[in-house]
Design a binder for these strands. Structure first.
Lengths: 192, 192
DNA sequence: AAATAGGCTTAAACTAGTTTAAGGTCGGAC
DNA sequence: GTCCGACCTTAAACTAGTTTAAGCCTATTT
């Protein structure tokens, strides 16, 4: 039931006092997930912010042809949620599921809003968290519109080395926006 | 010298009291920009958050071959900044410049941090602003990795209709990650 | 009035990335 | 033990998008 990884995460931004930690303890849910188990499915609103304590998740969309496209991975000490759907309450177009057996801490919308009100520094902490995620995403857009698939793959390996070792190549290809076959060719070209 | 558009913008999230408005008034700078005039140039840290009162801007990168890639446009009532560089103080890789003669309101880093501290609700307001920007960017990534150039162009027209009418097609092509020549072909195909 | 520059289009030759199909390997389920 | 599904690779045929080059139009500068 340990909340400690989440507290450490928050305190890497701003220290919390005991009563704030207690409030968190009351509102955060601990959950074990199996490989392939889903946190979110298309057609349902995203009801939780999920913090990964152990394991790894992916968020993806299935397009009209049935092809999956990975939008984001989240490993230890990262958040994953469909933020748009979470706040609007509208059905999500996305899936979130465990790639490995995982442990997460979840906060639902009502609780998060309660926490924002009662721990004002959480507004600042999440503002910074999401600013960082925004910058990361912006770099990805930049790469996507300005680089070849091979360059994108090499950057991915460099930037998410640990993750890359844990993921099957099909998942990486889907994240890069290319087919697994073409990724295979890129890998061959790089090796030679 | 009117601050009103910015106040209206903030108050669309949370109302401000008079002393808060006064604090803003002391810390916000009004600026007129000519067409093509730059707010930010590669190699310099991004020193301001800029709020567009009137006109239109683009943020872009110049790659190793000298090609420009548009990352973002910002028209009336939108913010534009290289957030990563702003907070880290590191040199930006990006340019921001006016596409039309424009009026902006700017806040520099010291002032913004002062305002965050003295108007705590600004933490929440900017958290929400950036959450919205994040969702928008995420949708763009999704489109980019899962759709053809033609689909992306049609979505752009639908989503940013006003903007599309104000921008030259070369700028739109650069935003979509394609050449102007290919955009021209897409437009021809659509028309027929 | 002429010259220039930015923007839009067309078309032919090219290249990056997809599709389809097949075959191989490995680990888990029955 | 074998069967099945997930994953990786190769290769040939194809398609989406780029490159190069040329020509046209309009607005601005000289």
């Amino acid at each position: 039931m340990s909340l400690q990884p989440l507290i450490d995460h928050f305190e890497s931004y701003i220290p919390l006092n005991e009563s704030e930690k207690q409030l968190l303890d009351d509102r955060v849910t601990h959950r074990q997930m199996k490989r392939r188990q889903a946190i979110l499915q298309e057609g349902f609103p995203c009801r939780h912010y999920s913090f990964v304590v152990e394991g790894c998740f992916r968020m993806y969309k299935i397009d009209s042809k049935g092809t999956e496209h990975n939008l984001q991975f989240a490993a230890e000490n990262e958040w994953i949620a469909d933020i748009g759907s979470f706040h609007s309450g509208r059905p999500s177009q996305l899936f979130i599921e465990a790639i490995e057996p995982s442990i997460i801490l979840q906060i639902d919308k009502e609780d998060l809003y309660f926490l924002y009100t009662n721990i004002p520094k959480l507004d600042r902490i999440f503002k910074v968290i999401i600013e960082n995620k925004y910058v990361e995403l912006q770099n990805r857009v930049l790469q996507t519109i300005s680089s070849t698939a091979q360059e994108r793959y090499l950057t991915f390996l460099e930037q998410y080395r640990n993750l890359a070792l844990r993921l099957p190549n099909t998942q990486i290809a889907s994240y890069l926006g290319i087919t697994p076959e073409f990724l295979s060719k890129i890998r061959k070209d790089i090796a030679s």
